[in-house]
Nucleic acid binder design. Structure first.
Lengths: 249, 249
DNA sequence: TTTATAAACGTAAATTTAACGTTTATAAAT
DNA sequence: ATTTATAAACGTTAAATTTACGTTTATAAA
């Protein structure tokens, strides 16, 4: 865990055959931030998990959940660790977004941040962990002022999610194992932040072969009830790699 | 330029209201590596610039061009700096790819690398700089063994280039201001590493409205000669942001 | 029995794509 | 002068997909 860096050897200039002097790296602090998305089926809203920072700098301000990358872990492990810490969830959808490295993004030390985004099911995370961290879920249109470039990270994460959702079955990571087509439809409307034609959506999503209709119904939102669906695991794994290309209008 | 990090203040554990101890970041070395693509119109090959490392670790081995990120620069500036150092070119296409951060990717220090890729015109770089750095251009099917994860970076860069080229007019960054349709066609075949139907390609690329036909011809490859084209700057900028979606078959 | 409504299903015109065949311009060979 | 070879440029059509709608169904409550 303890891996001190020898500044003497790191900061000296090393000679090089090229015209410019070769300067060995100077230590920079490396953090990860995680844009954690969840879909609230009742409110039919896509939400992001934020928390109130307890340490300086920016103590008391809203922030994405993040952490410094430790010596014994890769960035993705750090992002996963922080996700587990806040939600209790492991091995959920987690993907690297972008590395933000402006010199002055943090007023104190030089810190770069590798942003990730993850998709979780709001039905199955441990709420006491969120409470303990004074974290809360915010819908996209209601994001408070955030520290440094975290607002940009959310914007970029949503763009990446939109891009991904048309190519791969990522959306399903936001829903419980059994879901209805209307639920899926509303989720995609939230992802794309626009109205989608429900009849064409149904056709396109069914044409992937991804969905298996069950014979039970969810009657919480209508008298008729909406059939439950689950996804076909093998088709899901096939399309995760092969991909498709659906534009939702 | 000199921005020493105070290890005492960085490595101490700081208390936190949460269950897990909050560990402030420990310095990690941050590098950039740049996958520089160029298109050789004569050989009709997409190539990558590599150089033989002169310093440890991995001295003498082939590597992508890279550098440590300096205290006074962001990652993109570092990637741009190294590009200029090796080619003399400034303000060319440069985009972040991915941040590679495996704990053991470098046998010595803990180093993470933010990979970028750039597209340049092989007609207009300064060849003496490439020579001075003992760098050389390699076609994709002829890449030598590379240090650490640089082969993976090239694979990922090509995938990203392929993805980008179907959505935005990035390919043009690899061609001189005046080019012919057969040149453009062969470039896209190289990008996608497959045969494309030339008649459909022509139709799709012309349908974007991006190309302006000139009345001069390039006769180096045929008796008939191929018309020169340039791109419509305003349409280019429009499509850079709006994008399109062309699948090349 | 009627009504209201979410859910589910259907259709046809317009557009796009894929997979081909054909013509043209020119230098070199005859 | 005419023919030949060939890259470049242009054209066509059937099939597939998309778009933009309208219609029917199941059910609880009135």
């Amino acid at each position: 865990m303890n891996n001190p860096v020898n500044l003497d050897s790191n900061q000296k200039l090393m000679s090089d055959q090229s015209s410019t002097a070769y300067i060995k790296g100077q230590p920079i602090l490396v953090a990860v931030d995680n844009v954690i998305f969840g879909f609230d089926s009742e409110e039919e809203k896509l939400k992001v998990l934020l928390f109130k920072r307890k340490v300086e700098p920016f103590a008391g301000q809203w922030s994405l959940v993040g952490s410094f990358v430790q010596p014994n872990e890769s960035a993705v492990v750090a992002a996963s660790r922080i996700l587990t810490e806040f939600t209790g969830l492991e091995s959920v959808f987690l993907e690297q977004l972008h590395c933000y490295s402006s010199v002055d993004r943090d007023p104190g030390d030089r810190v770069i941040s590798i942003a990730y985004y993850s998709l979780i099911q709001l039905q199955s995370y441990r709420k006491e962990l969120v409470e303990r961290h004074e974290a809360a879920w915010f819908e996209l249109h209601d994001i408070p002022d955030l520290v440094v470039d975290h607002a940009q990270m959310i914007t970029d994460a949503l763009a990446k999610l939109q891009d991904n959702a048309r190519r791969r079955p990522v959306g399903f990571n936001l829903l419980p194992p059994k879901f209805t087509l209307p639920q899926l439809f509303k989720l995609y409307q939230e992802i794309y932040q626009k109205e989608i034609d429900d009849r064409n959506f149904r056709k396109k999503i069914l044409a992937t072969g991804l969905l298996e209709k069950l014979d039970t119904k969810d009657k919480t939102t209508s008298k008729k009830g909406a059939f439950h669906y689950q996804f076909n695991k093998s088709k899901y794994h096939q399309l995760e790699t092969d991909g498709y290309d659906i534009l939702f209008h």
